[in-house]
Computed example of a mutant assay.
Amino acid sequence: MIKHENENSKTFSTSTSKQIRVYRRREHAISIYTMIRNKRNEIIDWIEYHRMIGIEHFYLYDHLSEDQIDIFLKYYLDQNIVTIIKWPFRPIENQHWNMIQSASMNHALKNFGPFNKWMGYFDIDEYFQLNSINEQLILSKTKSLDQLLDQSFPETKFPGGVQFYNCPISCFLSQNEILSSRHLNIFQKCNSIVEPQDCSTRTKLFIRPQNVPLMQNIHALEHGIVFSAHNGLSNFGQFRHYHYGIVGAKGDQRAKFDNSMDKFIVNLTQRISLFYRTHCSEPKIH
């Protein structure tokens, strides 16, 4: 059930008197869609970093999580920073699971797209990295992220939006090791470069939802929708796809490091720490 911002009701009751949060639709310059499942231990880093670079809102499609993510993110819900949409669906027998993701992508496009100028479509192990010029403009509040996207990828030329490379960064740690401390801060734990860097095969998008009628593929827009393809750090930015890596695996290049995100470590650590101190207890490590 959807309630518009101007309507008063925040919840509705089922026949069993169970309280269910009703999501609202508000206008934002730039937001992110993603699907999550039991991502409680990683999501604060992701939200706080992207807030730092100008993301205003996060649409989280909760696919059968068991970690009480709505309670954990109550502060963000109350501040209208996130919207959680329960998405308890499973694919039809013998069908790929991504049909569930495609359905949620289109739900976000149709229900929230009209209220957003830009929407990013990517996962919470992917972080959008700006080049140094754009980064400085945003951090100094000279420009906003949506303004920079409009400037670099004008609607008259690229009405659908823009596709960016997605480059792998490895940790060479197990998931338990990554999550062993109270605050993840993935920039500090994961900065090993995997060679060769294949950034072009798993691209991700920022779209102008008002000009996109359909979302079938999270990596590229449908044929006939004009968008700027194959963009990287040199001309605007890129996604960093964090994965764990395997110690001793072919391509293990732990002697090569990418420290370009170190500048965010102190500030991000403070923001994460403040969230845990103020809004919740110690997160459970699963």
Rank of each mutant, 00 (worst) to 15 (best):
H241Q: 15
T201D: 10
R40G: 06
Q19H: 09
N111S: 13
Q95K: 10
F112V: 13
K18S: 10
S200I: 09
T16P: 00
Q238E: 15
W118V: 13
S170G: 06
F128C: 13
A229R: 15
I124G: 03
K3M: 09
C280Q: 06
M119R: 09
S15W: 11
V247P: 10
E93K: 10
I246K: 15
F89C: 01
I85C: 06
E222C: 01
L274T: 09
D198L: 13
N211E: 07
L173E: 12
N211A: 09
W118Y: 15
T16D: 11
V194T: 08
H219R: 04
W87M: 00
E27F: 08
S273I: 02
T14S: 13
H219V: 05
Y49D: 04
L205W: 09
R90W: 07
E42T: 05
P114L: 03
Q95E: 08
D62W: 01
S181M: 05
S31M: 09
P168E: 06
N94V: 01
K284A: 11
E27G: 07
N259L: 15
S234F: 05
L205D: 08
Q68K: 12
I133Y: 11
L179I: 04
G251P: 06
H57L: 07
M105F: 00
N6D: 12
E48I: 00
W118Q: 13
T14H: 05
E195D: 08
P213K: 06
Y76R: 02
C171M: 03
D262W: 06
F153G: 12
F89Y: 14
N116A: 14
Q216E: 05
N267Q: 14
E48F: 00
I186D: 05
A220N: 09
T83Y: 04
L130C: 08
R24N: 14
F58Q: 03
L73G: 00
W97V: 10
L130Y: 08
N185L: 03
I169W: 04
G248C: 08
T278K: 08
N217L: 01
I246R: 11
L274G: 05
N106S: 02
P154C: 04
T203E: 09
S15T: 09
N98P: 03
V212H: 01
P114A: 03
T203L: 02
F72W: 03
N106Q: 01
A220R: 12
D146W: 12
L109N: 04
C199Y: 07
